[in-house]
Design a protein around this nucleic acid. Structure first.
Length: 267
DNA sequence: ATGGTAGCTGGGCTA
């Protein structure tokens, strides 16, 4: 069997609702992680999504942030706190366990990592602290030795090749060395950027600013990522960045990133 | 150097 997963920062689920539902009907991933839903749980459009065969797991917040996981399979052990000993005032995290029909389990983390601008600032410090907590959680999850996937808006430009002109981004929180180092620290635990294995040397930006004609000039950045534990990574067979959605009417400034995996029948 | 756009909201903040 096969499992398809995706991540999309929709920048307001209510503002995006029509193109979002259309996209979901066409693409229909088994699991979809959303960021920046920008609404409280009660304002999330559950009904239309459930009619398409999804369960909705929502960590909403008024006005800002907010994440959700949509899944065709029922998920268990839902957690909304990245650090269970220190509650985050901002809704940026969901962890869930996917129990597949073949009785194998997968840990899913949906993240909206803090932007951190401007640099330097308390916001940047919050970003680094948040990354430390993510690293700590990833260590625990990796030690469980089952497939583990982190999907979301990382607000990290990993390399000079992931931005149209890195010289303009040297003091931006998305490209600061302190943030990139923590991203590498996370990867060095044994997590692999799906893009690195599957991109065929495409650039695959995932975000183009609304300002300054960034889309028309292709002034993009690659900040939405799918990180895979070793066992998940071995089974990936498809990866794509759906940049066409950036051309839609009233688009998000981010586009979806999708991956598909083979799932062994017997484990 | 400034302001450029969008979402949520009903200011100004966030990105």
């Amino acid at each position: 069997m096969s499992l398809s997963i995706a991540t999309w920062n929709v920048n307001g689920i209510r503002a995006r609702k029509d193109i979002f539902i259309d996209w979901l009907k066409v693409n229909s991933p088994d699991i979809l992680c959303l960021q920046e839903i920008k609404c409280v749980n009660d304002d999330f459009p559950n009904q239309e999504i459930e009619e398409l065969g999804y369960n909705c797991y929502i960590n909403g917040q008024k006005s800002f942030n907010g994440v959700a996981i949509l899944s065709k399979y029922e998920l268990t052990k839902i957690t909304f706190n990245l650090d269970e000993n220190d509650e985050d005032e901002q809704a940026r995290f969901i962890e869930a366990i996917l129990e597949l029909p073949n009785n194998s389990n997968i840990i899913i983390n949906c993240i909206y990592l803090p932007n951190g601008n401007p640099y330097p600032s308390e916001k940047f410090n919050y970003k680094l602290r948040w990354m430390d907590k993510l690293i700590a959680r990833a260590k625990v999850n990796i030690s469980k030795e089952i497939p583990y996937i982190i999907l979301g808006d990382f607000n990290i430009i990993p390399t000079e090749n992931d931005v149209y002109d890195y010289t303009r981004w040297t003091d931006d929180a998305l490209f600061r060395i302190e943030a990139k180092k923590k991203f590498r620290e996370l990867c060095n635990l044994g997590l692999y950027d799906a893009h690195a294995f599957m991109n065929n040397n495409n650039v695959d930006y995932t975000h183009w600013d609304y300002q300054g004609g960034a889309w028309e000039k292709n002034h993009g950045i690659r900040i939405d990522h799918i990180l895979l534990s070793a066992s998940a990574c071995s089974n990936i067979y498809k990866f794509n960045t759906d940049s066409e959605t950036r051309s839609l009417e009233k688009p998000s400034d981010h586009v979806p990133v999708l991956a598909s995996f083979h799932i062994n029948q017997a484990q």
